[in-house]
């Protein structure tokens, strides 16, 4: 960063980053993969003060995976698909008719609230790619607004758990929601 501040166009970059953050305030961090880092497991999402709200309570103990607990969205994928159908996202078509998957990975805490959003993007050949940022921001915003998650239950205990939603795109349009 010290080297960057000496550059003549540094103020322009700073202004661009600030305006981008204002324009797309809910843009989560894009990851290239879920490889273990710093001894964490595959797909762990440690707290990042630059991205995550300090008010989101979680992770005091083991954070389970969604498939290891009884949780998920009330009404399941079926209900999520219905919500998506009535959302402006379903009517959007990207100018580049691209296939692929945009995955938003996050945590559902013991109160059923969500946080720590991260994004992965692959094309139709399962290679890492990037979709237009405003579109990805809309996807993340859709996920952030979902408010009927069940806390994770297992053998009488309540857990925080990792969850993801994947938006499948065909020809630049969202056509499916997984898992």
């Amino acid at each position: 960063m010290n080297e960057l501040t000496h550059l003549p166009y540094y103020p322009i970059i700073t202004l661009w980053v600030y305006l981008t953050a204002l324009a797309f305030p809910s843009f989560a961090q894009t990851l290239t993969d879920l490889q273990p880092r710093q001894g964490h497991e595959v797909g762990a999402i440690p707290y990042d003060p630059a991205l995550d709200s300090p008010d989101f309570k979680c992770c005091n103990g083991v954070v389970q995976q969604y498939y290891a607990v009884d949780g998920g969205y009330r009404g399941g994928r079926k209900r999520l698909i219905q919500l998506l159908k009535t959302h402006p996202l379903s009517g959007q078509t990207l100018t580049v008719a691209k296939n692929g998957y945009i995955t938003v990975r996050f945590i559902v805490n013991r109160d059923g609230q969500t946080g720590r959003f991260r994004v992965l993007q692959v094309d139709g050949n399962y290679e890492t790619t990037s979709f237009p940022q405003p579109f990805v921001a809309d996807i993340v915003a859709f996920v952030e607004e979902l408010d009927d998650w069940r806390p994770g239950q297992h053998q009488g205990n309540t857990y925080d758990y990792y969850q993801y939603l994947t938006f499948k795109l065909t020809d630049g349009k969202v056509v499916d929601l997984l898992p």
């Binding site: 993969d33 879920l34 490889q35 797909g43 992965l120 692959v122 399962y126 890492t128 993801y164």
Partner: peptide, 14 residues
């Protein structure tokens, strides 16, 4: 396998 189960399709497929 864990990459597929957790949403990282590129790493899984590789």
């Amino acid at each position: 396998v864990p990459y597929l189960k957790r949403g990282d399709y590129a790493t899984w497929m590789k």
